[in-house]
Amino acid sequence: MTEALAANSLLYLDDVKVSFDGFKALKGLSLTIEPGEMRAIIGPNGAGKTTMMDCITGKTRPDEGEVSFEGGTIDLTKLDEATIAELGIGRKFQKPTVFESHTVEDNLYLALKSDRGPLATLFHRLSGAEAARIDELLATIKLTGRRGDLAKNLSHGQKQWLEIGMLLAQEPKLLLVDEPVAGMTDAETMETAALLREINASGKSVVVVEHDMAFVRELGVKVTVLHEGGVLSEGSIDHVANDPRVIEVYLGR
C-alpha cells in the first residue's frame, strides 16, 4: 500500500519524526504530493510547517521516517541542501531572501540551472541562451524595468517575486513556497496566486505554506492542515474549513 503510494508520488513523506531537545516538532507526519500537483499547507504557528520544509530540503535530518523524491527512488534524508536543490527542489523562505548587493539580473543569473562547481563558475561566460532565459524570467516576475537595480532597493513584494523568479530559474520539479504573500497588498496577493497557478500549469509541482485564507482560496487546490507536528485534516478548502477539529484548533471559531 505505502509502496504504491510512494511509487506514484513526486514527494513522499511517511511517519516523519523530528524533535529538538525534547520538543517534538514533527510527530509522525505523512504527506504525498503527486507529480504536477499544487498543494496548500496551512496550520497555526508551531504546527511544524517550516520543520517539514527543512526535512525535505536537507536542512534538518528527521529522527525517524521516510522522505523520498521522484516515486520513492531518491532518499532525501541522506542528501545535503545543494544536492537536493540540484535534484529539482526549489525553496522560497518565509522571509524573502535575495542577494541584496547583487542586481536583480545577477540574482537570476546565479540561480540559472548550470554547473555549480567552482571551476565551472570561475570561467563561466553568460551565453545567449542564458541571457534570453533571464529576459524571459524578468518578464514573468514583472521586474524587467529594474533588472539593473540592486536587489536591496526592491520593495518587499518585489523581493518575494524575485525569489520566486530565482526558484523558476533553477528549473525545479517541485517548488516549496513558504508564505509567499506575507506583507503584500491585496492586488499583489492575487497576482502572486495567478503566478503560482501559471507555474503549476507549466507542469511543476508546488507546495505553498500560507496563513492567508483568501489567498489559499484563490489558489483553489487541495489543502493540508498541520497541527502539532501531524496532519489534522486534508481536502478541499471548503472541506477543511468545515472540519470541526480544524475550526477548533486553527480557525478558532
Partner: peptide
C-alpha cells in the same frame, strides 16, 4: 548548546 530550530 541548545539545539535550535531557527531557520535563518
Amino acid at each position: 548548546a541548545l539545539k535550535g530550530r531557527a531557520v535563518e
